[in-house]
């Protein structure tokens, strides 16, 4: 196995152009650092979205004037949607129960006593299987004569806007983050590539001699590839270290100060250990890719 030889060759090369290698390492470090803040944030938002989604349900308000037959037919439609798999579950909330629920939510119940009669409609509270299909469920039920169209959302209230807003935030983070990371990774690949190019250039006489004594292409290439990987991995390790400091001194104190809003939620993100592994792998990949691309261009047979 020539690995130890190739490693020594790579180290030799890095040492002989320290400044350029450091520049590449720093770029990788910045790119990986941003990747390292993005991954947990993205997962956090994604998880928050999912949690919000699971809380969203649909209220279908029943008109006071609706006949029993009309209500039964509405319920039939909902059962239908249930059997189609769109609806996860539903409950009927009578006018009385609705009032009860309101009472329990209000601190000052005296206000209710002022009401001449119960203004709250009865409703079906539907929990959809997939919150994204809220609108589909609503559309399927719309037009049923039992529905009280004077109510909010023409009798069918679902938090489409909230969901959509959350989803669009998630998408925004996803896309901008993705583009940003792509740009940074490309920059890192190019910089590693540049390091390797300069390294090849600095050693072009050496490479010529290597060819003369019968070195195969890969024998000449491996040290350069390893050089790229070493730069990538060192940059990634440096940024993992920086991320760890940020986690301990910035993120965790902040979470502790905002406990109430967060501890109750099941919103979760990635563990630091797995994040570190992913980032170091990414650094190595960037390094290998950067040197690979360059070798193809500048170290032809």
């Amino acid at each position: 196995m020539r690995l130890s030889f190739f490693f020594r060759e790579a180290i030799r090369s890095i040492r002989s152009n320290v400044a350029i290698s450091v520049a590449a390492i720093v770029t990788v470090m910045i790119a990986v650092f941003i990747l390292g803040t993005f991954i947990p944030s993205y997962l956090y938002v994604q998880s928050a979205v999912n949690q919000e989604k699971s809380r969203l349900d649909i209220s279908v308000y029943v008109a006071d004037a609706a006949t029993d037959a009309q209500v039964t037919s509405l319920q039939g439609s909902i059962t239908n949607l249930h059997s189609q798999g769109l609806v996860k579950s539903y409950v009927f909330v009578s006018k009385q129960q609705a009032l009860q629920r309101l009472k329990s939510e209000l601190s000052d119940q005296s206000i209710l006593n002022l009401l001449p009669n119960n203004p709250l409609p009865a409703s079906f509270d539907i929990i959809p299987n997939d919150p994204a299909k809220d609108a589909q469920i609503a559309a399927a039920l719309r037009g049923n004569p039992a529905i009280d169209t004077t109510m909010q959302g023409q009798g069918i209230n679902y938090a489409a806007t909230t969901t959509n807003r959350l989803l669009s935030v998630a998408k925004f983070i996803q896309y901008t983050g993705f583009v940003l990371i792509l740009i940074l990774l490309i920059a890192a690949v190019l910089l590693i590539g540049n390091t390797i190019r300069l390294s090849i250039f600095a050693r072009r006489r050496e490479v010529e001699v290597m060819r003369l004594v019968g070195a195969t292409n890969w024998f000449i290439r491996w040290p350069f590839v390893i050089e790229g990987i070493i730069c990538g991995v060192i940059g990634a390790i440096a940024s993992v270290f920086a991320l760890y400091l940020a986690k301990v001194f910035i993120v965790e104190p902040w979470i502790n100060n905002n406990t109430d809003s967060l501890t109750k939620s099941n919103v979760s993100t990635i563990g630091f250990g797995s994040l570190a592994v992913i980032l170091i792998l990414a650094g190595g990949l960037v390094g290998a890719f950067g040197s690979g691309v360059t070798l193809r261009r500048f170290l032809k047979v």
Binding site: R211, L212, V213, G214, A215, T216, N217, F219, V301
Partner: peptide, 10 residues
């Protein structure tokens, strides 16, 4: 081409 290194070793 890819055999040239082996030629040169000799």
């Amino acid at each position: 081409r890819n055999k040239v290194p082996y030629l040169r070793r000799g």
